[in-house]
């Protein structure tokens, strides 16, 4: 990770993106440092493919650069960025017509491997099961929960991104959590 000067760290996302838009492309590095992990988390949560997720994060920043002139500066940068991230994700799967590997099988494979047990599943069992449950959700429900996680429950902003009202987002989140809870219970009974 690059070392950043404190005065640059203090700049808001929007102020940085405005600088990028106006030609100071180096400032994109600061935004990258701030958001590479949430973006990677979002993509990895969607496809469970580390290499692909890194490529998709890269694609998001390529698009941010490409369409930087469209950033007006009056909206929230994070919302704009996740909007691009959603499009990148949808475009990738539409183009390649491949779905993420069956999540349950994937998890079972990993559970069966002692190596994975020791490296990847060091978190608490509850968190492991929750992650497994997430992977079994349909794409739209997993997406709304990931957006809610990385957008810090800003339902209004998520609504802008999805083209629906804040109340409608709450209902979508409810349905996703309801199904997550159900899957979690089943997994809990199984393992």
């Amino acid at each position: 990770m690059k070392t950043l000067r404190p005065e640059l760290e203090a700049l808001s996302d929007n102020a940085l993106m405005v600088k990028v838009r106006d030609g100071d492309v180096d400032k994109l590095g600061l935004l990258f440092e701030r958001y590479k992990r949430p973006l990677y988390g979002f993509f990895y949560g969607m496809n469970k493919d580390a290499e692909l997720s890194e490529d998709l994060v890269q694609n998001v920043f390529v698009r941010i650069l490409k369409y930087r002139y469209l950033f007006r500066g009056d909206g929230d940068f994070r919302t704009w960025m996740f909007h691009i991230a959603r499009n990148v994700n949808h475009d990738h799967f539409r183009k390649n017509k491949i779905n993420a590997k069956d999540s349950l099988e994937s998890w079972e494979e990993r559970l069966g491997s002692t190596e994975n047990r020791s490296t990847q599943f060091q978190a608490e069992e509850e968190m492991q099961l929750l992650s497994m449950a997430m992977d079994q959700l349909p794409d739209d429900k997993r997406e709304i929960l990931l957006l809610s996680k990385y957008q810090e429950k800003k339902y209004k902003e998520i609504g802008e991104m999805l083209g629906c009202t804040e109340s409608a987002v709450k209902v979508k989140v409810f349905r996703a959590l309801q199904e997550l809870k159900e899957v979690y219970r089943k997994l809990e009974a199984k393992y």
Partner: peptide, 15 residues
Amino acid sequence: NLQDKLIAIEPPVPS
């Protein structure tokens, strides 16, 4: 509570 647990899961670290 379930949602907060989900949020608490540390996001993976890219290489």
